[in-house]
Design a protein around this nucleic acid. Structure first.
Length: 478
DNA sequence: TCTGGGGTCCTAGGACCC
DNA sequence: TCTGGGGTCCTAGGACCC
């Protein structure tokens, strides 16, 4: 446990509706609801003016309309929210590089790197400074919780809302948490709260008194252990800057239940196309295809099948998901259809791979700076990268300007990661100043390049300079 | 009131292997 | 020949979060 409250949790207040009110002054001071506006829509965010009427997130929009017919009901504009989020997160990263963005409107910060030895007063000043800059540059208000752990920071950003700061001095965690409802703990939802209530546990303090063994008996091994530790104010989770995606999915709820298999098939293809698009954009492929359906009675089923090889091929996803769907009874109607891919790995493109492996070695020139004209990075110039693999493995590869060898796959401008592993291969792109080469596991075949969407002309670099790099490395000892 | 869409993590049983 | 136990993978479902 840290000895000072250097972990912050920042949460933008009523984010979606705040952006709408920012962009449209006539909405300011008025009840605004952002969410699904169709017959089966639910509320994503209600402005504070709308919350006065009892409107809450996840409430059916129909119910919200009953409570406040005069509110503005808006369909979400995610691109606008993403832009605002990027602006805020840029300010956040000026405070510390140790930022874990957990959603479009939330992030944890660890101030240790930039404010070593900071006490509560300094942390409070940093947090207030950040809140002020967010307001001044974006017009949005943020609430911040500060404590010695993610848990305490998270719980207190909620208590600070709206537009506030709540800081818990080191040593006061358990006492602060004890009187709170167990529902204040992240991970305690309706089901867990109900199970605890049966045993007379309603507060965090009572959960702490219960003891770890009893908590495990009631809630299962993982959940029980974790929640009991939380109840004592114990939380050793680190702030981590990057987490790899584990699945990609798309789903849709129909306005009216669907029984027609032809229509379902069309929706299935659309959903698979969305999944495929995202897989390729992120340079991923997955081995398990998952079909999800929700029936007329709201019961949910999933069916999955695991392939021999990871794929991002829409046709293949459609084929397997379609087979899974064919095995289900849809006579009573489906209200939701979803398709997903899990078991993700960094993407390989077999045809490109073959071409590359069969192709003659690309010309190797002097390392950057040695000669005029085209400059390629010499494979051994990346030797530093290879030597880092055995460690934690995100070596950077220097880029050189100039044309890359024929057949070199392209990554999308602005996409900050390309992948090569355990071998050499060329990559190129534009608009990005550096390439990070990421290595997975000790297991992959030599010579594989994992990347890109080279077959998509829309992704080809339009503007010079065109960069290329040779990513070169060897397997570490594992 | 009648329940979105995108995710994560956990549990449990069965298959399979050693 | 029969039996046991542990580990891993796969599948399905459920709780939870924003």
């Amino acid at each position: 446990m840290r000895s000072a409250p250097v972990i912050l949790h920042l949460d933008l207040d009523a984010f979606f509706t705040a952006v709408e009110q920012l962009h449209k002054p006539s909405l300011r001071g008025k009840p605004v609801v952002v969410g699904g506006v169709g017959g089966r829509g639910v509320v994503a965010t209600a402005s504070y003016e709308a919350r006065v009427f009892g409107i809450r997130s996840a409430m059916p929009t129909a119910e919200a309309r009953r409570r406040c017919p005069n509110a503005a009901y808006l369909y979400p504009r995610f691109p606008a929210y993403r832009d605002c989020s990027l602006a805020v997160m840029a300010l956040v990263r000026e405070v510390t590089p140790l930022v874990e963005q957990v959603s479009i409107d939330e992030a944890y910060l660890d101030l240790t790197p930039t404010h070593p030895g900071a006490g509560a007063d300094e942390v409070a000043a940093v947090a207030e400074g950040l809140r002020a800059r967010i307001r001044a540059t974006t017009g949005l208000t943020a609430s911040i919780g500060a404590g010695t752990s993610k848990l305490v920071a998270k719980i207190h950003s909620d208590l600070a809302k709206p537009d506030g700061l709540a800081l818990v001095p080191a040593g006061e965690e358990a006492a602060r948490l004890a009187p709170m409802s167990v529902r204040a703990i992240p991970g305690v939802g309706p089901a867990t709260a109900a199970r605890l209530a049966v045993h007379g546990v309603g507060t965090v303090g009572r959960l702490a008194e219960l003891g770890a063994d009893e908590a495990v008996r009631l809630l299962g091994r993982a959940h029980g252990t974790q929640l009991h530790a939380f109840a004592l104010g114990l939380d050793e989770r680190e702030v981590v800057t990057e987490r790899a995606a584990k699945s990609v999915s798309a789903e849709t709820t129909f306005d009216v239940d669907v029984t027609d298999r032809v229509r379902l098939g069309r929706h299935l293809r659309e959903l698979a196309e969305r999944v495929g698009e995202r897989l390729r954009k992120d340079g991923l492929s997955g081995r398990t295809v998952v079909l999800k359906v929700r029936r007329h009675d709201f019961s949910t089923l999933t069916r999955s099948t695991t392939l021999d090889q990871p794929t991002d091929d829409v046709a293949l996803v459609v084929q397997h998901a379609g087979r899974l769907l064919a095995g289900l009874d849809v006579a009573d109607g489906l209200r939701l259809l979803g398709v997903g891919v899990s078991g993700l790995s960094l993407y390989t493109q077999p045809d490109l791979l073959d071409g590359l492996l069969d192709a003659p070695e690309p010309p190797v020139r002097a390392a950057a700076g040695d000669e005029g004209g085209e400059e390629f990075v010499r494979p051994d110039a990346g030797g530093g990268a290879a030597s880092q693999i055995a460690g934690e493995a995100e070596p950077e590869v220097t880029l050189a300007e100039g044309p890359a060898p024929a057949g070199t796959p392209t990554w999308r401008a602005g996409q900050d990661v390309t992948h090569a592993e355990h071998g050499a291969g060329w990559v190129q792109g534009s608009g990005v100043g550096r390439v990070t080469v990421r290595f997975e596991g000790p297991h992959t075949e030599v010579g594989r390049i994992r990347t890109f969407a080279a077959d998509d002309p829309a992704l080809a670099p339009a503007e010079p300079p065109v960069w290329h790099a040779q990513a070169e490395a060897e397997a570490g000892p594992g």
